[in-house]
Design a protein around this nucleic acid. Structure first.
Length: 470
DNA sequence: CGACCCAGAT
């Protein structure tokens, strides 16, 4: 429209005018309009630039249309525009965010072959994506290849790797890598220590965690709110509220401002001490201080109220989330379902789950397994069946563990016909029985006095190549 | 530019 007006007035829009308009549209989230303008430039014979492509590519990635971005990327070369390291890093980043590490790696190789120097930003994205997807050893191989090519001087890369190790329970390897980088003369950051501290906290090694916090200072670095929050959370989990609050004091004394995460941890601590009113008060304080509670904060406090059998307040807090423009997460609903199953009324849990299903609101798989479990325990196999079906319909991967959980509970109540039914469904879905599930059924048939079916089961077990131990 | 802390768990 602006272009048309300019033309009407006899003005000639140039490349810069177009670029600015494309930027503007993209910033407003209107990538379509940006793409249209680019088309228009082409038809008017303008030379397109790498920059305008980068803007469009990053906007497409931002709204999750990575594949469209890839198409546009390959168009670039046809129009005689050479991609640079920025273009590549945008795409690599976008692909990694979508979990498509393999495609990202291909682009990375392409970059190498064109002798475009990769920046640590794209390497970091790949490394992070590999770690988050559980491919820790692949991540390490990738990091080693960077080291070999002398491309790994950035501490952030090591931080990602160290954290990857820690998150997958391999604290030993994380410590080894930490020692390696210090030997190499690469200076760690507080983030490096935060990951290590997290690892030691997970193992409840508070001594080592605190020693590392000292090391931060010895190296002339400062602990951050993350450092404190990590430790505070560990103490909270350990039931050591005194140490948690002491750390809060220390934080204050050192002039480190708590974040909304810190507050969430404190709220959890207060709930543990059954100081629910104070917890609610703290939620208020957060808002006053401008530290807005997030979904996790609410999920935490909602769960606390559920455990205190105060379901009413739990739902009140759910409502408060909406009022504060916080969309409840699938976890929020799972917590409430669990609360109703364990501490409230199972019928209400049914109602809530069906309501959410009708509203097309997503639930976690835990939400489903929770209610299935509750019905099995109560012996309402009909309901258990129904929700099991629903869980399948929702596209959740059903593993042998899910079947085992249900069958075990039914066996305990000698509901053998029903247990057998679930077993048949499992076989029907192509899941092979394992030792555990066969033994559970065999034992149950014996316990419940159905010897004949027991023999049938035994035959099936042997046929499956699983020898019953005895 | 980014990496680290809080909720759900059979």
């Amino acid at each position: 429209m602006v272009i048309q007006r300019m033309l009407d007035k006899g003005l000639n829009p140039d490349v810069v005018t177009y670029l600015m308009l494309i930027c503007g549209h993209c910033q407003n989230g209107n990538v379509k309009e940006g793409l249209k303008l680019q088309e228009e430039m082409l038809s008017r014979g303008f030379q397109l630039s790498t920059l305008s492509y980068s803007v469009l590519l990053s906007s497409l990635c931002k709204i999750g249309q990575v594949h469209e971005a890839l198409v546009l990327f390959y168009e670039m070369e046809n129009h005689g525009v050479e991609p640079d390291h920025i273009t590549y890093s945008i795409l690599i980043h976008g692909l990694c965010k979508q979990g498509e590490v393999q495609s990202a790696l291909l682009l990375y190789k392409e970059m190498w072959s064109k002798s475009i120097p990769p920046n640590s930003y794209s390497s970091g994205a790949i490394l992070l994506s590999l770690c988050k997807n559980g491919m820790v050893s692949e991540a390490r191989m990738y990091l080693d290849s960077l080291v070999m090519n002398d491309c790994a001087h950035d501490i952030v890369l090591y931080n990602i790797m160290i954290d990857g190790y820690v998150k997958h329970g391999n604290l030993e390897e994380a410590v080894v890598l930490y020692r390696l980088i210090t030997e190499k003369g690469i200076t760690p950051t507080t983030v490096t220590f935060n990951s290590l501290i997290y690892g030691f906290c997970k193992r409840r090694n508070f001594t080592e965690a605190r020693r590392l916090m000292e090391t931060i200072r010895l190296l002339g670095l400062e602990p951050t709110a993350v450092t404190y929050t990590t430790l505070m959370n560990a103490y909270c989990k350990d039931g050591n509220l005194r140490c948690m609050l002491e750390l809060l004091q220390e934080m204050h004394a050192n002039g480190i401002r708590p974040t909304h995460v810190t507050y969430t941890v404190i709220i959890k601590g207060l709930c543990k001490q059954r100081k629910l009113q104070e917890a609610v008060q703290l939620l208020e304080d957060m808002r006053i201080k401008g530290l807005n509670p997030d979904q996790v904060t609410y999920n935490t406090i909602i769960q606390c109220f559920c455990k205190a059998r105060n379901i009413k307040t739990a739902f009140k807090l759910l409502n408060e989330m909406w009022l504060n423009n916080l969309k409840p997460t699938p976890v929020t609903y799972s917590i409430l379902i669990n609360g109703l199953c364990v501490y409230g009324n199972l019928k209400d849990a049914n109602k809530l789950l069906i309501y959410l299903h009708e509203q097309n609101i997503k639930l976690t798989r835990v939400g489903y397994t929770q209610i299935i479990k509750a019905h099995c325990v109560k012996g309402d196999v009909h309901c258990a069946f129904m929700f099991f079906h629903l869980m399948m319909e929702m596209g959740f991967e059903i593993s042998i563990k899910d079947y085992t959980a249900v069958i075990n509970r039914l066996c305990k109540r000698c509901l053998m016909t029903e247990a057998q039914q679930f077993f048949s469904i499992m076989l029907f879905h192509g899941i092979s029985p394992d030792q555990e599930i066969c033994e559970a059924l065999l034992d149950a048939y014996q316990q419940c006095g159905d010897i004949i079916s027991g023999y049938q089961m035994l035959a099936l077990t042997v046929k499956a190549g699983l020898l019953p131990r005895r």
